[in-house]
């Protein structure tokens, strides 16, 4: 029977980086949304703009970590044979590409979430 061997030489460490690329960008945005919204609605007097911006910067860092992981994984797989449809290396390349595209999408979402904090005051 022909099948992929476990992880197909991609490695457990590399898989962790791949998962970071896949999962960190959406989690970063969700975290930013939940925290900023909670700050604004629970007590808008205490939700100073600087605090909201701090939360958003934290989310940018988290999202950046995910994007960096995905980019490094993508680069590490360069030159190795396998398309996005193959198992093993192909699957790893698929996850890296997923992470990169996901980072781009959730960066847009984070920007869209951040814009109102520059235009409105917390108690508006």
């Amino acid at each position: 029977m022909s099948h992929a061997t476990p992880d197909d030489g991609v490695g457990t460490g590399r898989n962790a980086a791949l998962w970071a690329g896949v999962l960190l960008p959406p989690f970063a945005w969700l975290l930013a949304l939940q925290v900023t919204y909670s700050l604004v609605t629970s007590n808008c007097q205490k939700a100073r703009p600087a605090l909201l911006h701090g939360v958003l910067v934290g989310a940018v860092v988290l999202l950046g970590l995910g994007a960096f992981s995905a980019w490094r994984s993508w680069r590490a797989l360069r030159g190795r044979p396998g398309t996005l449809e193959d198992s093993g290396v192909g699957r790893a390349r698929f996850m890296a590409a997923f992470g990169l595209l996901s980072s781009a999408l959730f960066t847009l979402l984070l920007v869209a979430t951040a814009i109102p904090t520059f235009l409105l005051r917390p108690c508006d």
Binding site: L33, T36, Y37, V40, T41, C44, L105, L108, L109, A112, T113, I115, P116, T117, L119, L120, R121, P122, C123, D124
Partner: peptide, 20 residues
């Protein structure tokens, strides 16, 4: 009657979900 800033976050997300 939630604060407008809080609502704006969700307006943004509601529009952005149109992307995917």
């Amino acid at each position: 009657g939630l604060p407008q800033l809080g609502q704006s976050f969700f307006t943004a997300a509601s529009l952005m979900v149109a992307l995917p």
